Computed example of a mutant assay.
Amino acid sequence: MSDDHTHVQEFFTARAADWDSRFPDDGPAYAAAVADLGLRPGDRVLDAGCGTGRALTPLRAAVGPTGVVVGADLTPAMLRAAVQAGRDRDGLLALADVSALPVRSSSLDAVFAAGLIAHLPRPADNLRELARVVRPGGALALFHPIGRAALAARQGRQITPDDLRAEPNLRAMLAGSGWRMTSYVDRDDRFLALAVKEA
């Protein structure tokens, strides 16, 4: 495992047990972001970097009983917290790295990724891997329950022009990774970038 991966694992392992209790009011924001992904009954969707699985329940509701929901995360402690919360009933949990997903190419309809982009060691390559597993015309949602400015304030830092999640930077990175950004929202109460996989 690379040093980047070890750092991410250590960060989330230390926070897994109380993650949900630290952010108890995020449920509606997750549900709204999933709704904007435009899933249909029977769709196959990946929650990339699923953490404690807070998106799995709205994803399952969106794709229904005939759909497939997979939650992948690099940190075993996060997946254990998802099981303890009962969210494994809504999707299959997999210990997996988004840089090399154990998923067939073009086999999914969509990817949902909450808070993932800031933790990717090689964002362009990792977004390309997410594109690999989605069919042409499939969708990607990059979500965070608070916007960039609010998150920076919470973390005691400033937003800089080279921030990966700034619209021009993210749009260019997505375009270079097989995606076309279709919408971008960055408000204090929501960050959501939606993209479609190019044919």
Rank of each mutant, 00 (worst) to 15 (best):
R165W: 15
A35V: 02
A100P: 14
G67M: 11
P65N: 14
G71N: 08
D26S: 06
P76E: 06
R15K: 15
D188F: 15
V63H: 14
A31F: 09
R87G: 02
D90L: 04
R54S: 02
R104I: 12
A16V: 10
G51R: 09
S99R: 08
A35T: 04
A113D: 05
A77F: 11
R187Y: 15
G138H: 11
L92F: 10
G42V: 01
P24L: 08
T13D: 14
R44D: 01
D109M: 13
A85F: 12
D18V: 13
Q9S: 05
L95Y: 15
H5I: 10
F191R: 00
S21M: 09
D18L: 13
G156D: 04
M78A: 04
G147L: 13
V134E: 01
R148W: 15
P65L: 10
M173R: 00
F112N: 02
L142H: 13
D3L: 14
L130F: 13
A118I: 10
A149C: 08
V70Y: 09
G91R: 04
P161A: 05
M173G: 02
A14Y: 15
R122I: 01
D47E: 04
S106F: 14
T75L: 09
A124P: 06
A139G: 06
G42Q: 03
L59K: 07
A48C: 14
A48F: 13
D25V: 04
L74G: 02
A193C: 13
W179C: 00
L95T: 13
S106P: 01
A124M: 01
Q9W: 14
R40K: 11
G91W: 08
L93T: 02
L116Q: 01
E198Q: 07
D189M: 10
R44M: 06
D3A: 12
S183T: 12
D162N: 05
A72L: 09
W179R: 00
A150Y: 14
R54A: 01
P121E: 00
V111P: 02
R44V: 04
